[in-house]
């Protein structure tokens, strides 16, 4: 059997480990989200963007579909113009590729998103200029 003192020490030890793990998760210090390639700031404050970007996109989706409002502010293609990186050859890297802006976070939160099954994941597109 452990003594009461030993129990206390183990308890404190476990507590410290948990706290350090949690804070690591909370600050996300071990994940690096690629920075934006364009623009000084986002279309909203960063704290708001982190939490509310999906609501913005869903709202914009309906505005565009039903009312033909095509302002770029909250549009999906708008996000891509600032958040899609290029590789060394100057070609766009799809924003949903592993490690890229949208995917880096979503992989961490185990989010599966079907948007890019239809939507182009880069601002420009090769097909449009061929044929």
């Amino acid at each position: 059997m452990y003594t009461r003192r030993q129990c206390l020490l183990i308890g404190i030890g476990l507590g410290l480990i948990t706290i350090s793990m949690a804070s690591d998760k909370l600050t996300g210090s071990h994940r690096t989200i690629p920075g934006a390639v364009q623009g000084e700031s986002c279309v909203g404050p960063v704290e708001v963007m982190r939490r509310e970007h999906m609501t913005m996109l869903f709202h914009q989706r309906d505005r565009t579909m039903y009312a033909g409002q095509r302002d770029a502010e909250h549009s999906l293609t708008g996000c891509l113009s600032c958040h899609t990186r290029k590789n060394v050859r100057g070609e766009y890297i799809p924003v949903n590729a592993p490690g890229e802006f949208c995917e880096e976070c979503h992989a961490y939160t185990a989010l599966k998103m079907d948007c890019f099954e239809c939507h182009a994941a880069t601002p420009g597109n090769a097909v449009a200029s061929t044929q």
Partner: peptide, 16 residues
């Protein structure tokens, strides 16, 4: 079928 290389202004995808 699954599609690739959609143009940005015309999103298209399987099942629709």
């Amino acid at each position: 079928e699954n599609l690739t290389d959609q143009v940005p202004h015309t999103p298209r995808g399987k099942g629709t």
